[in-house]
Design a protein around this nucleic acid. Structure first.
Length: 476
DNA sequence: ATGTCC
């Protein structure tokens, strides 16, 4: 990335003043080193987003930003319906409501270490993973609609998990405003047997150790201490979300033309929030959010069953579940006035600071857990939202390491078998349905997640709270 | 991310 086009606001904030058809500036939060390494495409995409109608304040990119479909992955943008604001399917991403949940187990590394291989085997046997993987949950079309309305709440009502889990999920487990009738039959058909499955790509279930604590006070509120074993689940809305994204990108391209919205890139296809197509997308997208919440809830149930076979004393309690591919209506203060904005976070995690009434009481005083999934074999992090974050990018932070190499490049460079063996030597048990998938996800194909998280912390997007390192990884 | 091209 050529740094000469930026104004340096601070060591971790870089600004592009509006040029051409940009309505607002673009802002990238990153260290100088991360910005230099960043894909040139991020500059193009983050400034393209700044041209869209009704965008408020700025178009933002997080430290892990990289090239995405239309919007960068790691992009944040808010739109005001009163100012002709738009909603964009590409601004949410194909894997609608992809996200991470982390659970404490009540176990320590000493408990789990001797049982690691057996635990890996049983988790891999019970949790379906891989492209097109199907699970033990099969939905009739009526049940499908109930799932799309109810999210994790539906899952709990069907025996997957407990009421207590719901408190610890964004939107309390159920996204309001879902419109299952706006989800195509094709999307529902694809999802029929996919609830409770991990999927592929960067999705995983990991058993992790709490390796370091940076902020003891907040870590205690989250229930984390060094040597504890936790479980993290990273996945989304599977075939259903992907199908919705595909269909609405097509119809939004037509809608943009119809509403005379000039697009610098056709991948930015969008529709006014106050339009039929905009409202239909929001209803379908919220249904997909519920699908992802239900999916992570069912997988949690499967993980609890797997743990119970080896560790009857284990108790998997949810810390939090937060998505990083969404468009959500939120109240934010702009120039002293509270406005209702449609905040797109694509590969960006909501990071609300202390005091927000929608946060669970247990940690409302310290801020929201921001769960950052690393790449395979590398660390993950728990961050906490802070008040300052809400003055930056509408209370958002990074979501992971971000790729630094394409999947094709990675498969040319590494072999899945070698990666699994190398990680086993380091004490990390990988189980995966596809060796090619493992090569694509090689740790070397990703940026350094620690550098990304440090930049997020220094930029004021979130506090670094804890570092998690993998013991077992069930790879999608 | 994805029934990795209906």
């Amino acid at each position: 990335m050529d740094l000469s086009r930026f104004t340096k606001v601070s060591d971790y904030e870089w600004r592009v003043e509006p040029f051409g058809k940009m309505r607002v500036p673009a802002v990238i939060y990153a260290s100088e080193a991360l910005l230099r390494e960043m894909d040139e495409k991020v500059f193009e995409q983050v400034t393209n987003v700044a041209t869209l109608p009704g965008i408020v304040k700025a178009s933002y990119a997080m430290p892990d930003a990289h090239w995405g479909y239309g919007f960068p992955i790691g992009g944040v943008a808010a739109f005001d319906p009163e100012a002709g604001g738009v909603v964009s399917a590409g601004g949410v991403g194909f894997d609608i409501s992809c996200g991470v949940r982390t659970l404490t187990t009540g176990l320590t590394v000493a408990d789990v270490e001797p049982m690691k291989k057996a635990l890996a085997d049983i988790l891999f046997a019970r949790i379906p993973a891989g492209v097109g993987s199907t699970g033990s949950v099969h939905l009739s079309m009526e049940e499908m609609d109930a799932m799309l309305e109810g999210g994790a709440r539906w899952a709990v009502s069907r025996g997957f998990g407990t009421e207590a889990d719901l408190e610890r999920i964004e939107e309390r487990g159920m996204m309001a405003g879902a419109r299952p009738e706006e989800v195509s039959q094709q999307a529902k058909k694809r999802q029929r047997d996919e609830v409770g499955t991990l999927g592929s790509g960067n999705h995983y279930l990991e058993v992790q150790r709490v390796a370091e604590i940076y902020h003891p006070h907040i870590a205690a509120a989250f229930g984390l201490k060094v040597g504890d074993v936790v479980v993290s689940i990273h996945c989304g809305s599977r075939g259903l979300g992907h199908q919705i994204g595909t269909e609405f990108l097509r119809s939004m391209a037509l809608a943009a033309k119809e509403y005379g919205i000039e697009l610098p890139d056709r991948e930015l296809a969008c529709a006014p929030i106050r339009s039929d197509i905009g409202q239909r997308y929001l209803g379908a997208m919220r249904a997909a959010i519920n699908c992802a919440l239900a999916n992570r809830q069912v997988i949690t149930h499967l993980a609890r069953e797997a743990f119970a076979t080896l560790f009857p004393q284990a108790r998997l309690d949810l810390i939090y579940d937060v998505s990083h591919n969404t468009c959500k209506v939120e109240e934010h203060e702009v120039d002293g006035r509270s406005r209702k904005l449609y905040v797109h976070r694509k590969g960006a995690t909501r990071a609300f600071g202390p005091g927000r009434p929608d946060l669970p009481e247990a940690f409302r005083h310290v801020g929201q857990p921001v769960l950052i999934g690393g790449s395979m074999g590398t660390a993950s992090y728990v961050l906490a939202g802070r008040e300052e974050s809400e003055h930056h990018a509408w209370g958002s932070a990074c979501h992971g390491a971000g790729r630094s190499m394409s999947r094709i490049q990675a498969t040319k460079r590494w072999r899945g078998r070698d990666i699994i063996e190398a990680l086993a030597v380091r004490g990390i048990e990988i189980r995966a349905p596809s060796l090619r998938g493992v090569a694509e996800e090689a740790p070397g194909a990703y940026k350094d997640v620690s550098a990304v998280v440090d930049a997020a912390d220094r930029a004021g997007l979130a506090h670094k709270v804890a570092k998690l390192t993998p013991l077992v990884c069930i790879k999608g």
